[in-house]
């Protein structure tokens, strides 16, 4: 159900190499845009930091998360079984007043 939500970030490219390449190219050409490109790199790194801080579910390793997910699934299954057991208990047939 949660996997159905489309994630836009996946289309993004998280590589820093293109910007670094642009900086080096500007340096080769002695272009005045070097500082601008360097600022771009700094900004991208800062944005990446902020994005990482706000990303949900990454406070644990994938292995730990997987084990927690498995535990939750088992809990849901157990509780569903318990509910079914409660519901299927011997009920008294209360005679309806005629």
């Amino acid at each position: 159900m949660a996997a159905a939500v489309p994630v836009v970030e996946e289309a993004e490219d998280y590589s820093f190499l293109p910007i670094i390449h642009d900086v080096i190219k500007c340096m080769d050409k002695d272009s005045p845009d070097v500082h601008q490109e360097l600022n771009k790199l700094k900004t991208k790194i800062q944005e990446a930091r902020e994005q990482i801080s706000s990303m949900p579910g990454i406070d644990m390793s994938p292995a730990v998360q997987e084990s927690k997910l498995q535990t939750l699934r088992e809990q849901v299954q157990t509780k569903n079984q318990l509910l079914q057991k409660y519901k299927s208990l011997c009920m008294f047939d209360i005679p309806k007043p005629s």
Binding site: A3, V7, M55, P56, Q65, E66, L83
Partner: peptide
Amino acid sequence: TALEQGRVHQEMQSLEKEVEKRDSDI
């Protein structure tokens, strides 16, 4: 991996809600 974990986190949240609901039912 982080994006995948985000998806798993959403699933975990929905499961936690379900667990809470089942708890209240029980």
